[in-house]
Every structure is written in C-alpha cells, then in structure tokens.
Design a protein around this nucleic acid. Structure first.
Lengths: 235, 235
DNA sequence: ATGTTTATCTCGATA
DNA sequence: TATCGAGGTAAACAT
C-alpha cells in the first residue's frame, strides 16, 4: 500500500465523466493496483477511485519539460485503466507532501453478526414462536418474482408466506404482497396467509400490512438467540 | 487528516456488531473526526468506519500496565462514539508503523457529467425510437403522486406513460404501476399504456412488468446519443 | 429537518 | 459467470 499526500487534479471517464480541480488530497494505491482519492472530510466514500482489476502507469516529468510548458506544472501523472470496463482515471500530481509505502499483507477479514440472514435462520429454527404447531416448509422458497424468505404451515396445515426484515418498512409489505398475489394463484397452495416479521415495524408499514390482512410480528433477536446482550456491549 | 499504519484490532457495535482480528491496517482520522479502517485490498469501502458527527477519545497505556497484563499488549486505544446514534467503534493499536498528519483544507469538490437525467432528455428527443409515429407530450408530467418521466402518444394517438431507469428493477415497475393506476382514472386520458425503459432490465422486473401489461424497452445510451465516443476519451 | 431516489453503489450468496 | 437482494448502505435531491 502506497500513501501519497499531494496537491493534485483528477479526471475520470467511464460510466460518467468527472473532474477534481487542483487541491491537496490523500491518494491511496492498494496492493491490487486500485486507487482511492480522499479529501479531509465527507467520510467513507472517496472523491474518486478506480476499482480492481486495474493497471496503473506512472509518468514523471523532468524540470526541462515543466519549464518548456509553464502552464502546467505537474511533476508526475498516474494513468489508471480498468482491465475489464476500460474506465480511466488520470491523476496529476503537482506537489508531493508525503510518499510512503507499507506491506500490510492479506487481511483476515470482517466478522459480522446480527444481519438479516441470522434473523431468517433463527426464525426458521424457531418457527413455532409464531404459533403453536407451526412447521417449516422451507427457507428461500422460489417464485418467478423472487424467493419468499420462509414458507411455513400453521397448526391447521394452511400455507403461510413469511417476509423477514431487520427494519420493517413499506417496501417489505409491498414485496410480501406481490408474493401473496402470485402464490394465491396456485390452487394447490391457496389460500396463503402472510406474516411480516421484523425487529421493528414502522407504523405506516404496520397499517398497510394489516389493511391487506397481513399479520405483523416483532422479532426479538436476543430472545431468539437465547442470549442476554448486557455483557456483550463494548464500552 | 491523520494517517496511521498499525497492527490493530477493531470492534464495532451499532446496527450490527463486527470484529476485525489483529492485523496491519491503514487508519485514517479525518478533520471532522470520522475514522476509516482500510486493508490493502478490496474496493473503496473501508473494512470498518465511523461516520461524522462523532467523537474520538484516545487512551495510551504505559509499559507498566502492559507488563502487568501480558495477555493484551495494545499501546493505544481509540473509542469513537457517534454523536447521534450512539454507535461505537473501538480500535486497539498494538504496533504503530507510521503516524503522520496533514492539513488539507476544504476540497473544491467533484464535477460530474453524464448520469441518468441525460437518458430522459435523450429519449424525449428521440421518442420515435419507441415506435414509428410516436410523439412527445411532455417530460416530467405531473401527477398527485409525483411526475411521470415522459408522457407520449403512440401512432394511434393513445396515451403512453414512460418510466425511465438506468437499471430496471422491481421498484421502478411498482412506481410506473402506481402512475398508471392513477392516470387511468382520468377519462380524458384512459386508456393509458405503460412503457418501462432502462439500459438494462432485470428478469424479475421484466416478469412483473409484463404480467401487468407494461412493455419493456432496453435503451442504448450511445446509440441514443448518436456520438462516437472516441474523441472524448482521456488517454 | 425530513423523506425519497440515485449510485462509477459495494458485497455476498446463489443458480 | 450472471443475477439477485441487502446494506452500519452513503450521498444527492426535493420537500
């Protein structure tokens, strides 16, 4: 990883064209050749970048060339080309304030916990928390317009389509509604009920769901996991 | 902007919990207090981060403390708390390989050109690419629930509502469906047909659209622009 | 300030 | 490989 702090200008052409005027910025060149251009604010996303796989070609200019063309005083130019899409990024460095390199090696990677996939797995394993005698048919039940998160049967053996979200918003209700419309055309399945399950359901989503005869269930992640979260807080 | 290259471990709790095991990484602390944790690979997204507004509290450990607890040999700890959501990021630095600071100042910002609004303008100018004898009624045709991208008339003079997306997904079909439902209540307009136009339409969106009697059209941006792009390339 | 839509989205899972 | 859905989506835009 190479870190360069420099006054630079940047041009990008690809899906769009974009330009950054001359200003001091942080340039990061990663081991895979990808380049990030960061300013000192507006976090997370670089001002400009090139994703791997890409190739960086660097050009230096000597003093004679700069004197011969006093209008442009850049001393180094990076031409980065994406290997597949052909997108191009050009960085012109006018003044280098720092330039260092480090060998970091492969990263062991991020360990995540508490996302939607967990909720789905936990609810599938504990489907009877929705009602006594309920049974799991299958997770990711495929349809022409996408997979239903969980298909189940209630105590009477009637089919139930369950949509799970971390946060229950109107989009999720619309999604479940589409599935129900499609599933209820199948005479072997119909009538199919709907359950909208989320850790928190927004009032508007709840109103819409209930107006359409869809039951709403609030999921307690920790209760499903069976762990008290008090000890696991950071600080 | 402070740049630190260090062997570190990272923990995050907020919307989810996440952990990064001890490894060498780049840490960026921006002027607004936001923190980025980058590895030497992946794309522009940090492994972990804290967005502003947030507060960083730094703790140093002296040699005595480290000797007293040989199991943990970190020498500095950053506790970063988001000021509004309370999300927490903890970085423990075990070995500092570089530590530098730079004053970059405000960035003049990115100038973009060539995104989705262009598609709408181009299609409006070339509405007959959808069918011979078609004519433009108007762009951004206002309704009570938002503007229809393009209203047009086909060769028979029948009204057509056109929804344009760069990438055609199910949300866009839902949007167009709502417009059509509303427009078809107007006896002066009805019957109104729907056209879903995008540079690429996902299969599931196409199924849903056609199920609802909406025509799908794939747009070719370059063909619409009718310009050879060779001259506008950077290098 | 708040809600909606876009994105050079990124990222992982899956057929 | 293409495609899909989720995201600590973030960021831009309109209200």
């Amino acid at each position: 990883m190479r870190l360069v702090v420099a006054r630079c200008s940047v041009d990008y052409t690809g899906r769009l064209t974009a330009h950054l005027p001359l200003a001091p910025r942080l340039l990061i060149v990663k081991a895979d050749g990808s380049v990030l251009v960061h300013s000192d604010g507006g976090s997370y996303k670089p001002l400009n970048w090139m994703t791997p796989p890409c190739t960086l070609r660097s050009t230096r200019r000597d003093d004679d060339e700069i004197e011969a063309d006093p209008d442009s005083d850049w001393i180094e130019q990076w031409d980065v080309t994406h290997d597949k899409t052909g997108d191009k990024l050009r960085v012109r460095l006018h003044e280098i304030l720092e330039d260092s390199s480090h060998e970091l090696g492969e990263d062991p990677g991020l360990q995540k916990d508490g996302v939607e996939a967990h909720l789905q797995a936990l609810l599938a394993e504990n489907i009877d928390t929705l009602g006594e005698g309920w049974s799991l048919v299958r997770r990711e039940y495929g349809t022409a317009i996408g997979p239903v998160d969980i298909m189940a049967r209630d105590a009477d053996g009637a089919a139930v389509a369950i949509e799970i979200k971390r946060r229950g918003e109107i989009d999720g209700v619309e999604q479940l509604t589409r599935y129900l419309e499609l599933l209820n055309r199948d005479p072997l399945l119909a009538p199919v009920r709907g359950v909208f399950a989320a850790q928190a359901i927004k009032p508007q989503a709840r109103v819409l769901a209930e107006d359409r005869g869809i039951d709403c269930v609030t999921l307690d992640y920790d209760a499903l996991r069976g762990i008290d979260d008090v000890d696991s807080r950071l600080f």
